[in-house]
Write a protein that binds this DNA or RNA. Sequence first.
DNA 1: AGATTAGATGCAAATCATTTGCAAAAAGGG
DNA 2: CCCTTTTTGCAAATGATTTGCATCTAATCT
Lengths: 143, 143
Amino acid sequence: MDELILWKKRLKDKGIRWTKQRAALLRVLLQVKRPLSAQEIFVELEEEGINLRLSTVYRNLNCFKANGIVRNLNFDQQENKFELIKGEHHHHLICVNCEEIKPLDCPLQEFEAEVDQKTDYAILEHRMKMYGICPNCQKKTGD
Amino acid sequence: MDELILWKKRLKDKGIRWTKQRAALLRVLLQVKRPLSAQEIFVELEEEGINLRLSTVYRNLNCFKANGIVRNLNFDQQENKFELIKGEHHHHLICVNCEEIKPLDCPLQEFEAEVDQKTDYAILEHRMKMYGICPNCQKKTGD
DNA sequence: AGATTAGATGCAAATCATTTGCAAAAAGGG
DNA sequence: CCCTTTTTGCAAATGATTTGCATCTAATCT
């Protein structure tokens, strides 16, 4: 649980105040290790007996996003999910049935450089999602 | 404008009725040649003097989506955009400044096969977006 | 430590995209 | 032209996310 100290420093360096709400929010993201929606974070904290408003969760996620602390994945009309920005740049493999999310290595480094070179665009970043059916759900639907 | 006839047949083959609202909607998507949001389609038709409800636009886009006629791109919290499914499978290069959208060839065929093979997931599809600054916006911000 | 202040939170209400229920209207088949 | 089924208009609901404002609190200054 002391990875939190690291994040505390990271926030402070960006001039973002360290509040108990933010600590709780980051702790959940660190523990759960998968992208979470504002709602999911809210419920998780509620269950732990930590009370903060959903709007506070949103405000902080937005703040973190603006400061490069978290990134958000957008899905169809559903709620957005957020994940901490740490470790290798990666993508996501999503089960269309149960919505489980697995990380995928990025195969696009070269392609990005190529697009940057061959077009007049200055490339900033890219996102990729792969959709499929996870082993578990394959078993279930196979029955 | 007679590509519409083709789409009419395509809809009929799927048992989707051909109404003037649907014709108008498809016509706009065909003419504009870039992904459009429900709102954008609605406004475009309104300007042409064609009156249909926004809910009708949504209902039909959903219907088209369910039948593989259109695909939707999801962006941040903003509105979803829809594009006709036709031509080569491709991706999108989006200007973060003016939101212009350009098509990109897909470099992921092999990677998809590889993931399908090396993981226990049955891969269905993938999506990729690349973000950058278009030449026009580079000029502007360069001033 | 106590005062100060800019920024954060609680709370309720607003906003925005999207969906839904229902009665009236239109499409396609016979 | 009639019948059945699907679609549309319309208004109201929904659900995620944002906002305004008073209050509170973390960080700074003395």
